[in-house]
């Protein structure tokens, strides 16, 4: 039927390497999500409660992250910073780029989450004698977390998908590794087909874990 012979053997032989690279993908995505959540929380709070340069910084960060392509942001951290003498390794570039992007998107989700928690909750907590830190960490943030749990899961999936851009800046995560093997063996279609399956499995795993976690976390 086809004028093309499929050769799956080289792909199968390097499958362990690909799976190893898949773990790198997961590692980078998870790390950037952790950084992104922390930064996003700060950005959301700065955008809502601060005035002056801090608010301005938060708004600029969020709008830049949301209104330019992720690939552009990666190029910026790679070539842009390289031009002024800051040379990052591919790993740091992808980590910085993904964290920057995730922080921007998550900040808006957090802002929505904070707005969904009534003001009176914070006031009541303060009336009960909690200080601001306690009120936030024990009363407000757990409620916000419930609202933003689903968006965070989505963002985690996006982080995994976005980390595939590492291929273009020479980082050997799943896509980069695939590109490397594909250009060595010229079995481009076969390699990328297997990689697509691996990505699908990773994404489904994340969604399944998130669902299990949700069952455990939101029992009450």
């Amino acid at each position: 039927m086809f004028d093309y012979n499929f050769h799956w053997r080289p792909v199968l032989r390097t499958l362990p390497d690909l799976i190893q690279a898949g773990l790198t993908t997961l590692e980078v995505a998870t790390l950037s999500m952790v950084i992104g959540i922390l930064l996003g929380l700060c950005l959301a709070l700065a955008r809502m409660n601060m005035t002056g340069p801090l608010k301005w910084l938060a708004v600029t960060w969020i709008e830049l992250a949301r209104n330019t392509p992720a690939l552009f942001q990666l190029f910026f951290f790679g070539f842009g910073l390289g031009a002024i003498g800051i040379n990052l390794t591919p790993y740091t570039i992808i980590l910085a780029g993904l964290s920057f992007n995730c922080a921007g998107y998550l900040a808006e989700n957090f802002r929505g989450g904070f707005q969904a928690v009534p003001d009176t909750q914070l006031k009541a907590a303060r009336c009960l004698g909690m200080n601001a830190w306690q009120a936030y960490t024990r009363i407000v943030i757990p409620q916000v977390f419930r609202v933003v749990y689903h968006p965070i899961t989505n963002q985690m999936v996006w982080a995994v998908l976005m980390s595939s851009l590492g291929m273009l800046i020479g980082f050997r995560e799943l896509s980069g590794e695939t590109q490397f093997f594909a250009s060595r063996t010229f079995r481009i279609f076969e390699y990328f087909a297997v990689t697509a399956v691996l990505y699908y499995v990773i994404v489904k795993l994340i969604l399944a874990v998130s669902r299990l976690l949700a069952m455990r976390l939101f029992r009450y």
């Binding site: 004028d3 273009l168 481009i188 990505y199």
Partner: peptide, 23 residues
Amino acid sequence: DVFRSVPLIIQLVLFYNFAPIIG
């Protein structure tokens, strides 16, 4: 669901290399 769960860049490379196979 597949289109949403596989990175766009992989989809693009895959299709670009698959199209000639089916002529």
